[in-house]
Amino acid sequence: MPSSTKKYRSALIIIQSILEQLIKAGTNEGIVKSRIYKSIGLKAIIGDKYLEQLMSARYISVNEEKWGKERTRQKVFITNRGLRRFQWFMKLSSELDI
């Protein structure tokens, strides 16, 4: 494991922001993928990679649901694990003693 995490910070802030968006929406509500990308300023292709990683880490789950007659949309939900990870970062604020 590398000693410095600075080089990952740009990715970590996006991960935190995604988790924050999902918590804000409500754990049972979920958000449509494209809305997350737009609010964070991610291109869809990059956003998909993030969500893929977050799914494999079991931070989020993605459900597909019908939208209209032919179209489907993918809703993203935060898992308990994702919620705890976000709380870690918030706990950081207490550790930072700000």
């Binding site: 494991m1 590398p2 995490t5 080089k7 990952y8 910070r9 740009s10 990715a11 970590l12 802030i13 996006i14 991960i15 300023g41 991610l42 291109k43 990059i46 990679k49 993030y50 990683q53 977050l54 880490a57 931070y59 990870r85 870690w88 970062f89 706990k91 950081l92």
Partner: peptide, 25 residues
Amino acid sequence: IEQKILEDLPKLQELANLTNTNVDT
């Protein structure tokens, strides 16, 4: 804390590289 997240997300470097070149923060 960051290293704990890194353990969960081993491909974080790949994401960071993508972000640095493509995202309007």
